[in-house]
Write a protein that binds this DNA or RNA. Sequence first.
DNA 1: TAGATTGTTAATCGATTAACAATC
DNA 2: TAGATTGTTAATCGATTAACAATC
Lengths: 211, 211
Amino acid sequence: MTEVRTRIPKAVVKRLSLYLRVLQEREDSGSDKISSNELAQALGFNSAQVRKDLAHFGQFGVPGFGYHAGELRESLKRILGTDRRVRVALVGMGNLGRALTSYHGFSRQGFEVVCAFDLVAGTEDAPAAPVPLFPVEELESRLKELRVDFAILTVPREAAQDVTNRLVEAGVTAILNFVPQRLSVPSHVQVHYVDLSIEMETLNFYIAPPG
Amino acid sequence: MTEVRTRIPKAVVKRLSLYLRVLQEREDSGSDKISSNELAQALGFNSAQVRKDLAHFGQFGVPGFGYHAGELRESLKRILGTDRRVRVALVGMGNLGRALTSYHGFSRQGFEVVCAFDLVAGTEDAPAAPVPLFPVEELESRLKELRVDFAILTVPREAAQDVTNRLVEAGVTAILNFVPQRLSVPSHVQVHYVDLSIEMETLNFYIAPPG
DNA sequence: TAGATTGTTAATCGATTAACAATC
DNA sequence: TAGATTGTTAATCGATTAACAATC
């Protein structure tokens, strides 16, 4: 990962994803022209912000015209790395894990869950899974065999750090962590935290009567 | 919702939730004393930020001492509104919806999924559910009957705005929306967006080779 | 050319951090 | 009292927005 890349704030990257969504939605909508202002309006942002975000990565527009939607879409895909398919493994086939292995939103954006791991794999308690399900003992060998570099973590809290260590050992460089637990990882590994309870609490705050 | 409440940034509220987590983890760990610095260290934040965040809501500490952990925990619960149980309905029993109805992380923080809705309810395609599952036609009557004011939305994209309108009509004031679709709602209704694909893309950006 | 919209610089706004008097 | 840590003000940092020359 290049130096310039790590200096881009997460908020910018999230907005790039949103721009891409808007462009994908309009893909078959007649005009190939879109302005920073149209893009901004669609998302409730400021047009200067759209231009500034894109400026991190080059010049994509035509002064006096706007952007060629198709071109910009492909540029954004390349920037975000979703022009290639990404091979993902999921660890922990609880309720959430099972749901995510069959979540179609991922594959549409180029993320392919190629296998899953759980302690119960191979036992009679093993759930039906839409992808090959392996026992956790096989983690290292299977990840290497399937050339996985991206993991989704949905294990119980107690197991989170152990599993993480093994993922890192096996060459995984990005972890989407649904476990409410800080993970300690080497600096070349990226962890992104998704905490659904905290999302609920945040929302609840704004409707709850003042404490 | 009071004026002061809406002026608190989401980032502050998220951190309050995180402070509460740390306090809950330490609940049975001997000492009842905790300093802004300890709290900050546990989360990788700055101690001044901890004190500033709390200052939005009053004075909770003792100069020269720190905070009484138990007291602070109760104060945070009251502020976040998780001192009372919140009744939640879930709409859309696809993969993700089913997973979330049995997600224990919610109930631990006081969020109780009291019912779910889906078109297939009552037909032979209806999935087994750990909460009462009603057909969408009964949405308004059931929500009122069960006094629900909080909804989780996991329906297909095409249905999202329609269902939202009906939720709002039935008195729901907060929606946690997993559908990748902007929702139009009246200003007294809070919507919080969780887009798992965008989380994946954001993470992928930092490991993908530069475009 | 006239009109429109970009890329970019400068101005503004808000959030984070440092510093410290107050105080237990 | 001496030491520690709060609450809060002031300084810094970064992100958003406004403005506009460049240019299609």
